[in-house]
């Protein structure tokens, strides 16, 4: 597992580097007033921006991998795994 763990950390770092500004700005915590939430209210800023894609992906990977869960409870079971 170890080399794979390194690959993962590398991936995180790489994605961080190419979006360096974003990464630094992203984690700065500061209070946001109700009238400053225009960006946060956008559809593409929702934690699940495309529910149809998420729904389909959950099903595909549930039936092709051993790991599942994390996003919520409920949703249909199926005989695919």
């Amino acid at each position: 597992m170890k080399p794979l763990l390194i690959t993962i950390s590398l991936l995180i770092i790489l994605s961080g580097c190419s979006l360096k500004d974003a990464t630094i700005a992203a984690f700065k915590s500061e209070p946001v007033q109700p009238w400053e939430r225009d960006i946060l209210a956008r559809d593409d800023m929702q934690l699940e921006p495309d529910p149809m894609r998420a729904f389909v992906d959950d099903h595909i990977y549930f039936s092709k991998e051993a790991a599942t869960g994390g996003k919520g409870v409920g949703g249909g079971g199926c005989g695919c795994n």
Binding site: L19, A26, I39, R42, D44, M45, P49, A67
Partner: peptide, 27 residues
């Protein structure tokens, strides 16, 4: 018995309003 630890974020940046979504799950 299964456990999942899931973290995700959405961040907007840039002139055009690019949005990056990143998530990680440990299971």
């Amino acid at each position: 018995l299964r456990h999942a630890l899931f973290t995700s974020m959405a961040h907007q940046y840039g002139e055009k309003g690019e949005v990056v979504h990143l998530s990680y799950r440990y299971y």
